[in-house]
Structure formats: structure tokens, C-alpha cells
Amino acid sequence: MRIRLFRAEDEPAVLELWNRCMGEAFPLDAPLFEQNVLRDAHFDPEAVWVGEDAAGNLLAYAHAKVCKEPLGSAGMMPEQGWIGALAFVPDEQGKQAARQLLRTALDWLKKQGRKRVNYGSDPAHFFPGVPAEQTLHQQLLREAGFAIGEHVAVDLVRELADYRVPDEVEANLHRLREEYAVRSCTPQDVPALLRFLQQEFPGRWYYETVKRLEVEDTPRDILILTQGDAVVGFCHTFHRGSKRIGPSIYWRKLLGEAYGGLGPIGLAESTRGKGLGLALLCKGVEYVQQQGAQRMAIDWTDLVDFYGKIGFRVWKRYHPASLNL
């Protein structure tokens, strides 16, 4: 068995390996792999590895990341590193290769001067943390020195056949219509949207919005809450027509052909307490439904009760996993 750097021609075998390892819960395809790894701004060709047996068959895959550009106000995070994913053949030889890849990744991150490493939650992440059902991954991470936290982040899911905006939400929007409105973002709105994000959510949500706007033909799939000429809320939505594969639609194969997703979503602090967060959420779900989605997901949250108000239920669970180098 040997560990070596990933080569472009390894991609089909990596996808096959990933899907053998965890494809039932997290089916990976080439567009998502290329978006989140090979074309990501934080990609480093020296930080993607495979383990292979004597015959050249892949046994394990892993990649690590450090910031290559500032994550909004969070900056370059010079002490933070990530292991973005680990996939391996579920046998003894595969587990041994995975252990070696974890050591290789941690050694590389240490050489980059990193003092803290998270599994998942990286820029262009696949996972917010280690999936709760991946007990073997958790075992290997613990062996490597990671602490697995008790906190649970979740992805949520909802069928849309029976969805409609609740009457009380429509009534609230009608009552506030002189001051607030929910609508799709236009190109002319983008400067106001970015000013709002820089003020209210200047870190990763600002950064991820900028990255999305670079690839989409139009900003209309970002809904905005306006107060006069000002943007005071935002909601990303995703569907089959989206060019960016948002985190809520990563596992779209499991959602079916008519898939959709939502998030992140946020309001200016000054607008909270008026029911506008729920209104923006409801209108976001309605918008996804109008794009033809029949089933949709919301990713990486712990607000189960809030989203549960309109029928979302827990779909996937993740635990934080971190290590101090």
C-alpha cells in the first residue's frame, strides 16, 4: 500500500470509492466533486491524496484545506485548517489506508502552521461535521486525536406537494406591506444586498454570496427583504436551474429529479421580532416550489423548531470534530 497525491485521472475511481463508502447517504457526482474540490478557490494540489494497493486500486481518499483567500471578515484564518472529507473501502486494508491519509493530512496542515483542525465545515464544505451515522469515521478520527462534540447540526427535508404559505404569514406581510416587501434580487439590488451582508453577516455568508454571484447568470434566486430602498434580509434558494450547487442540494440525487434547497437565510437585527424571518422563509419555500421542486432540503442548522413550524423534519445529523495541533 502507498499514499500519493491525487491525479486528474483518478477522479472516476475516487467517485466510485466515495460512493462505495458512503454513496447511499451522500451520493457524489463529478460536478459536485469538481466544484467543491478541484475548482474551489482553496484547492491545493498538494493537499489531495489517495491510498492505493499494490495493484493500483484505490483504498482511500482525503483532502485538506487552508484559506487561500479571505472568508469575508473572518479573513485568512491563519491558524485554522480543515480535513474536508475522508472516504475509504470498508475493510481492514481500507481502514489502514484511511489512518495513513489522516496522518498525512495532519502533517501537511501542521507544516502550514495550523493550530486547529476541523473535520468538515471547510470552505466549499461537503459536511458541517462528521455525519452521525458514520461511526467508523468517528472511530478513526478519535484514533487520530479528534474530539467529537455532542452538539448536533442537521439538514432538514420537506415534501412540497401540500405546501402553501400559511394564512397568518400572508396576513402579516399584508399588514406590513407599506414598509417591507419580499422579492427576488435584481442586478440593480446587488450593491445594496452586499452592503447589507457586510454590515450584518460579514463573514462566511457574505463570502459565499459573492462566490455565488460570480457564477450565476442572474441573482434572482436570492430573495431579499426590503425596507424602502434598503435590503434588510436575504434568503438563498437553489433548484435544478442553479449553476452553483448549493449545500442544500448537494445530495440532490436523494431528493429526486424535482429537487430544491434553501439557505442561508438571515435578517437585519433591527427587523427581528416582527415575524419577518418566518415570512422570508415561507416565501423562499414558495419560490422553490414555483421553480418546479417537489422535495427540498435546508442544510446545516440547529433551528429544528423554527423550520418545523412549516413542516420541515430532520434528515441528516452531524457532530463537530476538532483537533488542536
Rank of each mutant, 00 (worst) to 15 (best):
E208W: 09
E208V: 14
E208F: 12
E208K: 12
V210D: 09
K211R: 14
E214F: 10
E214Y: 06
E214W: 11
E216H: 11
T218I: 15
R220A: 15
D221C: 10
D221W: 05
L223T: 06
L223M: 06
Q227A: 10
G228M: 05
D229G: 09
D229F: 00
V231G: 01
V232N: 02
G233T: 07
F234Y: 06
C235E: 02
H236N: 08
H236F: 12
H236D: 15
T237L: 04
T237S: 13
T237C: 13
F238N: 13
F238P: 10
H239G: 15
R240L: 13
S242W: 02
S242M: 07
K243A: 14
R244T: 15
I245T: 11
I245G: 06
G246K: 09
S248G: 12
Y250G: 13
W251Y: 07
R252A: 11
K253T: 14
K253P: 13
L254V: 11
L255Q: 09
G256W: 03
A258E: 14
A258F: 06
Y259M: 06
G260N: 05
G260I: 08
G261M: 07
G261S: 12
G261R: 04
G261D: 07
L262A: 06
G266K: 00
G266T: 00
A268Q: 01
E269G: 08
S270P: 02
T271Q: 02
K274G: 01
K274L: 10
G275D: 04
L276T: 06
G277V: 07
G277M: 01
G277K: 01
G277L: 03
A279D: 00
L280E: 06
L280P: 08
L280W: 02
L281F: 04
L281Y: 02
L281V: 10
K283S: 11
V285C: 04
V285F: 01
E286Y: 05
Y287G: 09
V288Y: 02
V288W: 03
V288I: 13
Q290I: 12
Q290H: 09
Q290P: 10
Q291F: 00
Q291V: 11
G292I: 04
A293M: 02
Q294L: 12
Q294D: 12
R295W: 03
A297T: 11
I298Q: 02
D299C: 14
W300A: 01
W300H: 10
W300G: 04
T301A: 03
